[in-house]
Write a protein that binds this DNA or RNA. Structure first.
Length: 430
DNA sequence: TCTGGGGTCCTAGGACCC
DNA sequence: TCTGGGGTCCTAGGACCC
């Protein structure tokens, strides 16, 4: 059960990927800029100038080319190494402000602040301090939203972003009831955290257009019509905190690695190389959280946007006799699976793998007939492989199945240097 | 030519058991 | 003639998030 005293802050970097790029290329400031998804497919981050042009989230880049030419929109490929590193810097700054922090996503963290507010003149003063320090130490602009539940903090953050009057910091707890009502009435119900497209339509069909309408709905009705999730949202909007801060990151229950191809792929051999590559990445993630998995699922897909091409999207799950974390074991299993679902004659666009039935390696049961010597060899080999790949680059040591050419690899035509993580890519100041 | 990737939670319904 | 009901586990699918 939540506490009535709970007071949360949500700190969110504005246009995160775009802002990261601008830190290292200040000449991109005020230039309409998008960062593209993997394979240079969609605009997954947009600068404010681009948003103002009406470009929606995940708009396909090829559809934007005309608009881009007209308004001088610049596009960068995504550089997740850079964003991940910048993200860690922001989080380490936030930890100085509160010991209770949930890193919710690469650009957002929740903080419990009722425990530290006595150290500051006001919640707004704290918010401004956070904003200022992150800007000064990383160059990134953030907004801070605060409220009596995580849902309210999210809402406050949305208001802080959208409305200049807040100057980047909004605490719903510091506003009068009338003012809160005004903003809730002015905000579409679809902006609430947890209310997506479908639920938004259903709520509106029932006469709930704004945040305020939902806030005033009876919890019983919400429970009956929508289930426990919406009931919780209703409570949270009323300042009753139901969602705890999740400070400990739980182990993944499922690990996915997949990519679209840079071009259509037709041969079994190339599909197998990509599947082996994805398995290697998935198993690295598995070992990083000290887990083992018992199921590997393999899938391949044709291009769902090519309506005139024959479609085929099979998947297959392969169970292992013993859960393990060995890339080579999973590679064999996955390729065997691929062999069973592969059909010639299709133009494949994407392949991927999913590891499931994941458990902690430390709790692994020893089987009666396990080959202990074999297991030790496997563990040693994986340790060496991970160490070499960390030190010398991702594909320094890899299974033969992964191949060497990567002809199917993704497009990434305009990626910025790894300014903060590679010595030879550090920015120069002339 | 060109359309991302990776996750979670909840619910409904079927299989199975006693 | 008369043909239960409740519990658990698992899976698929839907909805959401960034």
């Amino acid at each position: 059960m939540g506490s009535e005293l709970a007071h949360f802050a949500l700190v969110d970097v504005n246009n995160f990927y775009v802002s990261c790029e601008r830190v290292f290329q200040p000449r991109l400031e005020r230039v309409p800029l998008v960062v593209l998804s993997n394979n240079d497919g969609c605009a997954v981050a947009r600068s404010s100038e681009v948003k103002a042009l009406g470009v929606r989230m995940a708009a396909p880049w090829f559809e934007l080319k005309d608009l881009a030419a007209k308004h001088g929109i610049k596009a960068l490929s995504s550089n997740y190494t850079l964003y991940g590193d910048m993200s860690e810097r922001v989080v380490s700054i936030l930890r100085d402000f509160s010991p209770d922090i949930e890193v919710y996503s690469i650009d957002e963290s929740f903080l419990r602040i009722d425990t530290v507010l006595h150290l500051y003149p006001s919640s707004l003063a704290l918010g401004e301090l956070i904003r200022g320090r992150i800007r000064q130490w990383t160059g990134l602009p953030v907004c801070v939203g605060m409220g009596g539940s995580k849902t309210l903090a999210k809402l406050a953050n949305h208001l802080a972003k959208k409305h200049a009057v807040f100057n980047g910091v909004c605490d719903l707890n510091a506003l009068s009831d009338e003012v809160v009502r005004h903003w809730m009435r002015a905000t579409d119900v679809g902006e609430i955290w947890g209310v997506g497209r479908k639920l938004s339509l259903r709520l509106k069909a029932m006469g709930m257009q704004t945040v305020w309408d939902l806030r005033c709905a009876s919890l019983k009705t919400l429970r009956a019509q929508f289930g426990v999730v919406m009931e919780r949202i209703g409570s949270e909007l009323n300042g009753v905190s139901c969602l705890e801060l999740e400070e400990i990151v739980p182990d993944k229950q499922q690990i996915i690695a997949s990519r679209s191809f840079g071009r259509a792929v037709t041969s079994f051999e190339e599909l197998a190389e990509s599947v082996a590559t994805h398995i290697a990445r998935a198993c690295e993630k598995l070992r990083a959280q000290h887990s083992v998995a018992a199921i590997a699922q393999v899938f391949v897909q044709t291009n769902r946007f090519k309506l005139n091409e024959p479609q085929y999207n099979p998947s297959i799950a392969i169970g292992l006799a013993e859960p393990c974390d060995d890339t080579l074991v999973f590679t064999d299993a996955a390729i065997a699976g691929l062999r069973r679902i592969f059909k010639a004659g299709y133009r494949y666009k994407k392949a991927g793998v999913m590891l499931g039935a994941i458990s902690a390696k430390a709790k692994q049961q020893q089987g009666l007939f396990d080959d202990t010597a074999m297991q030790q060899r496997s563990a040693a080999l994986m340790r060496v492989m991970d160490a070499l790949n960390t030190r010398f680059g991702k594909r320094a040591v890899h299974s033969a199945a992964m191949g060497n050419t990567m002809g199917w690899g993704m497009r990434s035509e305009n990626r910025s240097p790894n300014y903060t993580t590679q010595w030879d890519e550090l920015p120069f100041v002339k």
